[in-house]
């Protein structure tokens, strides 16, 4: 996370060799990225760009999602199965024969994601995956990311969507002006006024709420609704009992 122009996308592009460092070293599984081709690195590191139109070109959604698999030399049976599975997972199966260019912005974004997920890279880099997604799609995406993560895949997400991050509670790397300025768990980072200011973010609504309710003895690092509800439930029930006893 970090302000516009902080260097997030530039860093992401270093991870599959699209950009190479002019100073220092980037390694993927121990291999220096300057010694590997983008094609070799891509097999391990899949990047989904911010703008889906930079990635889409096929005539149908099915072809688009199968394209990389074909190039990586998978067998036809595997390709068909893998494409179907990915389309299903991203709620795109009904668009299999549609041109990606007839779809809405949010839908194209999901096709781009599917096109990368299909070959199951070990490392998945998502540049602003929630743009143009409605809440249901975001929930789907969140579950999908958590599932991949639990299968041992590393997911790196570039995003400004503080509420989405609050719900996922991942490790956050905060960037500003080309540097990493903080690292930590999302609830710590997103409730820290100084860091939020520095990286041009805003607090998630729950963090705003709890920083203003500080006088009632609540913790300040609350960022998600469910924790907020539990804390308030307890306090409000106490109040209710007190009021009932008092009257």
């Amino acid at each position: 996370m970090g302000e516009n122009g902080a260097g997030k996308t530039t860093l992401a592009k270093q991870l599959n060799g699209l950009l190479r460092p002019t100073l220092g070293r980037v390694t993927v599984d121990g291999d220096d990225t300057t010694k590997k081709s983008v094609a070799q690195l891509s097999r391990k590191v899949g990047i989904v760009f911010q703008n889906p139109d930079h990635l889409l070109f096929s005539e149908t959604v099915r072809d688009e999602v199968g394209f990389a698999l074909k190039n990586f030399g998978f067998e036809l049976g595997v390709i068909v199965k893998q494409v179907e599975r990915t389309l299903e997972a991203l709620d795109l199966a009904h668009y299999a024969d549609t041109s990606p260019f007839l779809l809405s912005g949010g839908e194209r974004k999901r096709v781009a994601l599917a096109a990368v997920l299909a070959w199951e890279p070990d490392y998945l880099i998502l540049d602003e995956p929630t743009i143009g997604q409605d809440y249901q799609q975001k929930e789907r995406l969140r579950n999908f990311i958590l599932q991949l993560n639990s299968q041992g895949k590393a997911v790196v997400m570039v995003t400004h969507d503080v509420e989405f991050v609050a719900e996922c509670n991942p490790k956050v790397v905060l960037m500003s002006k080309g540097r990493i300025v903080a690292q930590g768990q999302a609830d710590e980072i997103l409730s820290d006024d100084g860091l939020i200011e520095k990286a041009s973010l805003v607090k998630p609504q729950m963090a705003k709420l709890f920083s203003q309710l500080g006088g009632f003895g609540f913790p300040r690092d609350v960022v998600d609704v469910h924790r907020a509800k539990m804390l308030l439930e307890e306090k409000l029930s106490e109040v209710k009992v007190r009021v009932a006893q008092g009257s």
């Binding site: 409605d134 975001k138 609050a166 729950m206 709420l209």
Partner: peptide, 19 residues
Amino acid sequence: GIGLPKVSLLWSLLKRDGL
């Protein structure tokens, strides 16, 4: 599937529990 403000969501949950 509309992304409702989190404070509204929180409130609706508290309201459901009669708090």
